[in-house]
Design a binder for these strands. Structure first.
Lengths: 255, 255
DNA sequence: GCGAAATTGTTCGTTTATGTTCGTTTTTAT
DNA sequence: ATAAAAACGAACATAAACGAACAATTTCGC
C-alpha cells in the first residue's frame, strides 16, 4: 500500500500521543522497521516531524508550548469523546464550535461530514476545518486571545447574534458538583452564554479532568444542555440530576 | 454502470473513510483495477482527490500547498519590501493588515513593534502575530476562504466599519499600467474598499510580479494610496503619475 | 438491427514501494 | 571507558502498482 496513507496516520498519531516509536508504528501498520524509518525520514525532511532515536516527535517549533501541552493532555480520551459526539452530529446543519481543546477534537472528527455550516470563535478550529472540503467555515470576529487561539469580546458576541444554530458544541474550563459549567475567563462566559441563547440544541464536551477543577465564572447549568460527552462516569449524584434535567450523558472511556 | 456513478460513490467513500484503495474499490464495484485507476486519475485531475500509490486520499491540504508554494515565491523580495514597510510603521498605532502573502511578510517584520492594535481579516497574519507579545490582535469575522486564509463577506466589512485605523497595509492581486489596484475576488474588493475608507493612511505592498498580471475587479487607484512598497522600478510613466498623485514609491531590490 | 462512440477489460514494459541484508552509528549498561 | 545491544541507513532484490496501447464489450442514436 501507499506510504501516503501511513504518513497521514503517523502524523495523526503523533499529534495525539506527542511522539511515535519506530517499533510501535511498524507493529501498528504491519510493516517492517525499515519502512517506518523511511516514513519518518520523509516526514522529518518535510519538517512535519522531528526525528529522534527510536522514533519521532512533534516539531518543537510550534507556537504556544503551554497550549500544545494542554492539547496532548488526555489526547486519547478527548479523541474518543469527540468521536462519540461527532457521530451524533448529522450532515446538512449549522453548527457552532467554541473555544477549547475538546471542541477542537470534535472539529477533527467532523472532517468527513458534509454540507455543514460551521461558525467558530476558535482559530484552531478554523485551521482544522480549513482542510476539509465540504463545509463552509465562518469565523467570528473578536480579540485574539493568544493562550488558546480564542476570539472573544464584543465583536464575537455581535457576530454570534447574527446567527441561529441548529447545534452548538461547547467546552468549559470546569464542571462543578452541582452541574454548573464554569470558566476562567469572564469574557468567554459572555460568548458562551450568547451561543446557548442562539442555538436550538447544545452539546457539552468535557473530559473528566474538568470535574476536578474549579473556575470563577459561571456559564450555565447542565440543565440547559441537551447532552454531555465525557470520558469517565460522573461523580456523586450528577447522573441522577442529569436524568431529572433530561440531559443525556454519553460516557466514552478512552481506548 | 457509468463511470459517473462510480465517481460519485468513490468521493462518497473517500469522504467517509478519508482514503480509498484501488483494490478495495475494484472489489466494491466489481470492476478491474485499471478501471478504478482511470477513475482515480480523472478525479485527481479535477482536483477532487489526491492520487497516491495504491489509492487516493482527500486532497487535505492541497489548497494549502498551492498557497505554501505561492508564499515562497519571491520570498526574498517580499521580505525586503516588508522590512522597508515595517520601518515606516511607528509604534503605538492602530493598524489594519489585509489578505495576501505580502501583508503576511509585513506581519512577520512587525513582531518587534510595540503597543500596536492590529486588526486583520487574514488568518495567517493573526497566526503570525499571535506569537508576538506586545500587540493586541483583533480578527474580523467572515467566511473563511480556504485558498489563502482570508476572511471575506458581509461580516468582515461590518467589523471593519467599527474601527478607524491610523494606517492600513494592503495587498492586491494585480497592479495595472494606469495605476489601478485590481483583485481576483469581488468579495475581497468590497473589504479592501471599506478598509481604505476607514483608515487615515494607506500603504500598498506589491511585488513586481503583480505588475505583469491582470485581474477583473478594481479596488482603487494608486492616487488614493499614500505609499507603495515594491521590489523593482515601476514601468512606463507610473513613477511620474505617482509623483503627481503625491504617492510615495519605495523600491527595495531583493537581497 | 447497425454502426459509431464510449466504456471496460487485457496485456506488458516501466515505475514505485517494501522487504532483506549488512556495515556503521548511537544508546545503554557495566 | 568499554562492550553489548539497539537503532540506523545504504544497497540490493522482490513484489506491487502503474499507465499506455489495444481488444472486447456495452450504449446509444439512427
Amino acid at each position: 500500500m501507499s506510504h501516503a496513507f501511513r504518513h497521514r496516520d503517523i502524523l495523526e498519531i503523533a499529534r495525539q500521543e506527542g511522539k511515535v516509536t519506530v517499533e510501535g508504528l511498524a507493529q501498528h501498520f504491519g510493516v517492517t522497521l525499515q519502512t517506518i524509518r523511511r516514513d519518518l525520514s520523509d516526514l522529518a525532511e518535510e519538517g512535519r516531524l522531528e526525528r529522534v532515536h527510536g522514533g519521532a516527535m512533534l516539531p518543537s517549533s510550534t507556537s504556544n508550548i503551554g497550549y500544545e501541552q494542554r492539547q496532548t493532555l488526555n489526547a486519547k480520551a478527548k479523541a474518543a469523546m469527540a468521536k462519540a459526539c461527532a457521530q451524533r452530529i448529522p450532515n446538512n446543519i449549522s453548527l457552532f464550535l467554541n473555544i477549547g481543546t475538546s471542541t477542537e477534537a470534535v472539529a477533527r472528527e467532523l472532517r468527513a461530514h458534509k454540507n455543514l455550516l460551521v461558525v467558530t470563535n476558535n482559530m484552531n478550529v478554523a485551521n482544522i476545518l480549513a482542510e476539509t472540503q465540504d463545509c463552509e467555515v465562518v469565523v467570528t470576529g473578536g480579540n485574539l486571545r493568544r493562550a488558546d487561539g480564542g476570539l472573544v469580546g464584543k465583536l464575537a458576541i455581535e457576530t454570534i447574534l447574527q446567527f441561529k444554530f441548529d447545534l452548538a458544541i461547547i467546552g468549559c474550563s470546569a464542571l462543578d458538583r452541582d452541574g454548573d459549567l464554569l470558566d476562567f475567563d469572564i469574557q468567554e462566559v459572555g460568548v458562551s452564554q450568547t451561543i446557548l441563547q442562539q442555538s436550538r440544541k447544545t452539546y457539552l464536551v468535557a473530559d473528566a479532568s474538568k470535574m476536578k477543577r474549579s473556575a470563577p465564572a459561571r456559564i450555565a447549568s447542565l440543565s440547559e444542555i441537551d447532552a454531555l460527552f465525557t470520558d469517565a462516569p460522573l461523580p456523586a449524584d450528577l447522573p441522577q440530576r442529569c436524568a431529572d434535567w433530561d440531559t443525556e450523558v454519553v460516557v466514552t472511556p478512552a481506548g
